[in-house]
Amino acid sequence: MFEARITQGAVLKKLVEALKELVTEGNFDVSSTGLQLQAMDSSHVCLVSLALREDGFEHFRCDRNMAMGIHFQNLSKILKCAGNEDTITLKAEDNADQLTLMFESSNQDRISDFDLKLMSIESEHLGIPDQEYSAEIKMPSSEYQRIVRDLTSIGDTVLISATKEGIKFSTSGDVGTANVTLRHNTTPEKPEEQTIIDLKEPVALTFALRYLNNFAKATPLAPVVKLSLTKDLPIVVEYQIGELGAVKFYLAPKIDD
């Protein structure tokens, strides 16, 4: 059987809210090492990779590897019934066609359980190699959210260029143009307020703002976001979820036809 208990149930709620519009459905692959999800959006230009470690949960047991097909809008409906302070336990029998979610209030005086119907989803796993990127930028996740939101109101695509001067986000549209530059800034005392640019070589790539804006739905999960860029390769937008794991979004760059 599979059983996973997380005291901070709000993390699970935020996670599903971050994913549900980007990916309609996907498999929770559970094994003794944790829970993983790899799913693409309907147009296959972006990919979500989620990895939650077994030791990040208060309790984790998985006797047999399983792929649990989840419809994310449906999972979201159920998780909306959990309180923000609730502990959430996920349970499934081997080869089950449903996932049980149990919510316990913090003072243990309210316990509820919901069964989510599982789907059979054929999914192809892509091998994503570990690689060095030309530029890696860590910045406050709220800053990333603000930049992509602001630029989405001006244009459809953004040119992200990383140089030794900083990282620049540029767009243009009917109303005009916009540029936002962040400089390497380690002055703030708190690491989560710093902007850290690790540049191997200058790089500039164009992306659809609609997707970058969608990735920012993960902002409540982490104070810091990491962007990784290399010429002609997908950007990686990564949120570390405390000690539990990480969610990474990959988006293909725009190419000139």
Partner: peptide, 14 residues
Amino acid sequence: AAGQKSMTSFFTKK
């Protein structure tokens, strides 16, 4: 016009 490649053109199937 600018297009976008599919994820499967960047990462190989396992």
